[in-house]
Each structure stands twice: as C-alpha cells, then as structure tokens.
Amino acid sequence: MARQGGKAAAGRAAHPAALSVLSVLALLSLWEWAAGGGWVREAFFPRPSSVVAQFVVLVRDGTLASHLSATLTRVAWAFLVAALPGVAVGLTMGVWRGAREALDPLFAFVYPIPSVLFLPLAAFVLGRGEPARVLTSAVTSFFLVAANTLTGVRQLDRGVLEAAVHYGATGHRLFFKVLLPGSLPWIFTGLRLGLGFALIVVVAVEMVGAEQGLGSLLWLSWQTLKVRDMYVTLLVIGFLGLGATYGLERVRERLLPWQPRVEVRR
C-alpha cells in the first residue's frame, strides 16, 4: 500500500497511528461489553478477554507451538519447492522465446486452477503424506514466482540493455550482471506473493487432511465447537500472513537499496 498520505496526516494529528489504535481499542471494549452484557451470543463472539486467556492457555500447554511449527515447516518447504524452480523457469522463459511460447498455453491453463485440487494428484505421485501436502501448496506459488520473474526480465529497459552490451556485457556476464539483478525487484514481488499463497494453500490443505497444523486446529475447533480456540488460531494465522508480507518487504529493502522505496501491501 502506498502511504504517501502518512506525512500529510502527521501534521494534523499528534500521531498518525493514534486513530487506528483508538479504533481497535474502541471495538474491543464494545465487543467486551456487548458480549459480557449478553447483547451478542458469547457462543459465537466470545469476549476478547476470554480469547486472550485461551491464547495464554494454548501457548502454555504447547498446543499452539506444535501446530504452528507444523504449519511453518510446511510453508517453508512449499516456498522453497516453489521459489527455486519458479525463478529458474521464469528466467529461462524471459531470455528464451521458444520456452516462453511453448509453456505459455500450459501455464495459462494450469495457473488459475485452485491449488487444493492438486492434492489428489500429488497424493497419486507421492503417496498420502507430507511431501504431497508440500507439493500441493507449492503449485500456485511456483506460477506466481515464475510469472513475476518473467515479467521482470521482459520489462528491463532496452536502452540499459543496449548500453550494457556496448560496454562488453555479453553471454554469462549479460545474464549475471544485467538480467538477473535487473529483474530482482520483480522476482521479490513474486516471492512475496508466492509466500502468501503458500500459506493460504497450506492452511486449506491442513483443513481437509492433516493431523497437525493451524488449519487442522481450526477444523478441529469447529467440529468440537471450541470457538475461542478458533479465534486464537485465526489471529495467529493473520499475524503470520502479516509477518510474511512485511518481513519479505524488509528483506527486499535491505537487499535492493538501489530502488526508490515503495511500500506495498499484498
């Protein structure tokens, strides 16, 4: 998200975040009061304080940690399995027109298929187990990384390429000193989107078939009607998504100081 409005607002309010904090506090206390007074059904909307209490319980007895680590491990593997071939394929398609034209129709067809559906396919190949879940979660991320990498290569300024060739960057030097660094910003966008999508699919896959993981905890809490557990899990997943997005953005800023700074959400 672009935040160019932030500076202007700073002049008016004492602190630009004050209103946001106030908004959250107001909603939480309204919720607390309404649930406590019986205005909304606590079976559906438990008091925030009781959700926090349950959070502490789940942290203490290790439930959250074991599910969280299962999910994180899967996301990490899926991300890795998607990112490396994704970048390689994207770069290949970027520099080699034959590959681009051959793969384009296949990718256009497979890319929009929701990843969860690949679970049976992956299970046929790898058996019902962890590798199948990881592979399933990697499918869409792979396409996102490849697509953005390809765009990164294609959008390189022709004038800059011409100049680089003129100053002797040919062959592998052209690739490693020009094409790769020049498309890095797009590769990073692809990685960021891919990481987000890996989380989405991992949770979905855990919901339909895994004994461990935040998705299965969510599913279990529905089936056993433990609403507080559900809210805790949702919060954790939310912060996980937030962390993945902003974490990778920080990494990008650190690694690509030559880019004018743009803040993004997504």
Binding site: V160, A163, K177, V178, G182, L256, W258, Q259
Partner: peptide, 18 residues
Amino acid sequence: ALLPWRTVLDNVAFGPEN
C-alpha cells in the same frame, strides 16, 4: 542508460570489469 542497481562507482567501472 545507467544500470540502476549499480552505484556510481560500479557503473563507471563496468566497462573495465567486463
């Protein structure tokens, strides 16, 4: 047509580097 990801120094040294 400078390489945007290279510093001034690295842009100038690009030809000799190659």
